[in-house]
Amino acid sequence: MGFTYSSEDSLAAVRMPTGQSILIDPSSRLGESCIEVIEGVARVYCPCEETEGMTLAFLQKGDQIRADRLCSEGVCVEALTPLCFKTQNESTSSTGFDAVNEWTLQLLRIRHLGSAEQRLQALLALLVNRLGRRCGDWCDLPFRLTHERIGELIGSTRVTSTRLISRLRSADLLNVPAGEPILRLAPVLIETAPLAA
């Protein structure tokens, strides 16, 4: 896992290309500072050796991470699409909503579904409902995840997630357009998912 190490002092506004990760310095947890996504989609994950890059959340424009709530090892932010984020002294959210906690709860709920098929369908529905959009006959997700990452998110192996994705593709429920960094999912897959909101 490669990432750029950064301290809060160097983070005014950061632009990152797709696929790049940055470690947010755990010593920057002083006070009420936060990191806010300005544009793009990011994956937030734990850099701890024991958790092997465990995904904590996916963030999009307007979502914030409170720096005082990071683990002792810090947190990594990976750009799933071209990403821009900034730091500020205080959170602008007065509602008490914490995007990372909300995502972590939703991902935990998915991990407790009975079968890998259910977990995959619930994960895809969650991602599309929160980060995607309906485009004609398909629902588009603006990024792709590796089969290994999907396996991590649903609590299965890469081989199992590859097999399940192949079934969805064969049933015309999932499409991976060549040359485009998106996933297309059939609306029926999203609408019938377990835990659908």
Rank of each mutant, 00 (worst) to 15 (best):
S91L: 05
D63L: 02
L80Q: 02
G132Q: 11
S91R: 10
E180N: 15
V14N: 07
M54C: 03
T162C: 12
Q20R: 11
R169Q: 14
C48P: 06
I182T: 11
A12L: 08
S21Q: 00
I150P: 08
L56M: 13
G74D: 01
S28V: 08
E180K: 14
L141W: 03
L113A: 01
I165D: 05
R66I: 05
S7R: 14
S115L: 08
Y5H: 09
L127H: 04
I24K: 03
E152Y: 09
R163N: 15
F58K: 07
V100I: 07
A13K: 08
L11E: 12
L164D: 02
I154G: 06
Q121E: 02
G19Q: 07
T104P: 03
V77K: 00
A13N: 08
L30V: 10
L30G: 07
I38R: 07
F85Y: 14
P187D: 13
A67P: 04
D137E: 15
E50Q: 04
P26C: 02
G62A: 03
L59N: 08
S93Q: 09
L123I: 01
W138P: 07
L183P: 09
D63T: 07
G96P: 10
A12V: 10
T157C: 01
Q121T: 05
S156R: 05
S21M: 00
P82H: 10
R130Q: 02
Q60I: 12
I150Y: 03
R133P: 07
D140A: 15
E39N: 06
I190S: 14
T51E: 12
T18E: 05
A57E: 02
V176Q: 13
P47F: 06
G132L: 11
V75H: 00
R134Y: 04
L11M: 15
V176I: 15
A79H: 04
S161E: 00
F85K: 07
R69P: 04
S27W: 01
L113C: 05
L105F: 14
